[in-house]
Structure formats: structure tokens, C-alpha cells
């Protein structure tokens, strides 16, 4: 794993945190929606079991959202600026790790 991995994990957490909160709200509302759907379909549902599971899942996702949020917005350690190299096709400067030149868009062999 490269040095960019922690940065990627933070970006993922920044998106996942609000989505986990959305998921938690979904779990809290799930029993009501399933009850309505069950009534419309004429099916009986073990409601007590559903409520217990949904509450546990909802609380779990709230905790997960908080943990991910705390991780995502914690100060990341300072990173060295990327080394620049010249493109072999047009000579423009670009980060060493680029796979394609941002100027001429041609592939840089790995």
C-alpha cells in the first residue's frame, strides 16, 4: 500500500460517514415501512424481532458514522509535495506518479 492510502481512507470516510447516518435513519424507519408494506401485501411479520434488530442496526450505524466522521476530519500528517518529472512526449512538468500527462494526455509507461 502506498503513502496515498491513508489519504484515500480519509476521503472514503468523509463520504461514508453521512451515508452511514442516512443508513441509520433508514434502519430506524424500517419497521414502520415494513409494517405498511406487509399490510398492503396481506402478510404477517414478526414485528418484535424486526424492531429489535432495526434498533440495534440503527444505533450501530450512528456509532459507525461518528467514528468515521472523527477519522475523516482529523488532521492528516503533513505530506511531502510530490516530485515533478518532465513528460517524455511534450516536456510538461507533472507529478512523478502520473499515468497520463495532464497537458498532452498521452500515456506514461508504468
Amino acid at each position: 500500500m502506498t503513502e496515498r492510502f491513508p489519504e484515500a481512507a480519509r476521503v472514503a470516510a468523509r463520504f461514508a460517514s453521512p451515508l452511514c447516518l442516512w443508513m441509520a435513519l433508514g434502519w430506524f424507519a424500517y419497521p414502520t415501512m415494513v409494517q405498511l408494506l406487509g399490510a398492503a401485501a396481506g402478510e404477517s411479520i414478526n414485528f418484535a424481532e424486526l424492531v429489535t434488530f432495526s434498533l440495534v442496526a440503527g444505533v450501530t450505524f450512528v456509532v459507525l458514522a461518528a467514528v468515521l466522521g472523527a477519522f475523516a476530519f482529523t488532521e492528516a500528517p503533513a505530506r511531502q509535495p510530490p516530485q515533478k518529472i518532465a513528460c517524455m512526449h511534450c516536456g510538461a512538468q507533472m507529478p512523478e506518479e502520473s499515468r497520463a500527462c495532464p497537458h498532452c494526455r498521452k500515456d506514461i509507461p508504468w
Binding site: 472514503a12 461514508a16 451515508l19 443508513m23 424507519a29 424500517y30
Partner: peptide, 12 residues
Amino acid sequence: LLFPVHMLCTTL
């Protein structure tokens, strides 16, 4: 729509 599981997974 209560569960954004597809959005969460594809974001990752």
C-alpha cells in the same frame, strides 16, 4: 430509498 447501500459501496 431508506438505505443508500449502493451509493456507499460504489463511493468506496
